[in-house]
Nucleic acid binder design. Structure first.
Length: 110
DNA sequence: GTGATGACGCAGT
DNA sequence: GACTGCGCCATCA
């Protein structure tokens, strides 16, 4: 993997880092905002976010259903839920409750 | 170069 | 509301 080659990964990381505290975003929203064309690319980018710097709050990125699909990629499967709950987000059965209210989009950037 | 996989999304049922 | 099938693009074997 090239190190000096800035892929769309950095675009994903930067956008995710803009997500405010207590808010979450979806892969589809990020993919649409960056015009990646596929939400899979966002997931693939976050797959390497652990080597990014500064660290990316990947726990704030969930799928369209508000499900913590990527929790297994964290240090512990429960870490993602713990972090979200720590930010005041209610998580039940691996899904964000009141998801629509905590959902953040680039349009809310302002 | 081909086939399979993946932190997904959408339309149809 | 939940499940299934298909499509999307990049990376790996």
């Amino acid at each position: 993997m090239s190190k000096n080659k800035e892929n769309y990964y950095d675009l994903v990381y930067d956008l995710v880092r803009e997500v405010p505290y207590g808010r979450v975003t979806t892969y589809g929203t990020v993919a649409n905002a960056l015009a990646l064309g596929s939400a899979r690319m966002v997931g693939w980018a976050l797959n390497q976010c652990f080597g990014a710097e500064p660290p990316v709050p990947a726990h704030r990125v969930v799928n369209r259903k508000g499900e913590l699909s990527g929790r297994v990629h964290f240090s512990t499967p429960t870490l993602m839920q713990e972090l979200l709950e720590s930010e005041g987000i209610i998580v039940k059965d691996n899904r964000i409750q009141n998801f629509k209210s905590v959902l953040w989009t680039p349009d809310d950037w302002q």
